[in-house]
Amino acid sequence: MKIEVTHPEPKPGEPVGAQYWRSLDEYADRPEFKEWMHREFPQGASELDGVNRRHFLKIMAASFAVAGVGLTGCRRPESYILPFSKQPEGSIPGLPVYFSSSMPDGWDNLPLVVETHQHRPTHLEGNPLYQPYGSGLTAQASASVLDLYDPDRMTSSYRGTRRITSAQVRDLLQETADKFAPTRGQGLRFW
């Protein structure tokens, strides 16, 4: 035999369990929130202005059909070749350019050969001309080329915590140069 169990409706005033709330708006029971709950979706999301669902489907079907016809007109996008205005000497598009450089690592100066592609450094090697290191390089120095492409890299110059313009940097360097000019750079170190 089938037994139907129906819970009786709670009588007014009878406690029906803990009243939970899911947001402060719901707890405050503001009229805007009631309206929002009633609409279920935010303004404008539940309907298209001026277009009902059937019309919308018709338009979409037609646009897919037209897109299919238009496929034959699909070409790859136009792309451009941007040569230099004045090609720098020694730079050949497509070939790497190697510079010798050095890098201070706190202990001493590491001699480097820097591979650049279109003036962007991509790879570091030890300079084989410097005998003591025999073209060796530390792992840190080798990886340091990636610092140049670090998105968190500083984008402007700072003095202490104060941002300064590149003109100010030039002034600062000029000042330093003037200061150390009499001793021809003795006692000056950059790192």
């Binding site: 040569p83 230099f84 205005s85 004045k86 090609q87 050949i92 598009p93 497509g94 070939l95």
Partner: peptide
Amino acid sequence: SFVDVSGHSNVPDAAS
């Protein structure tokens, strides 16, 4: 000018 030395054949700069 670099077609015979580079993999990429360059398009001339305006200076050319």
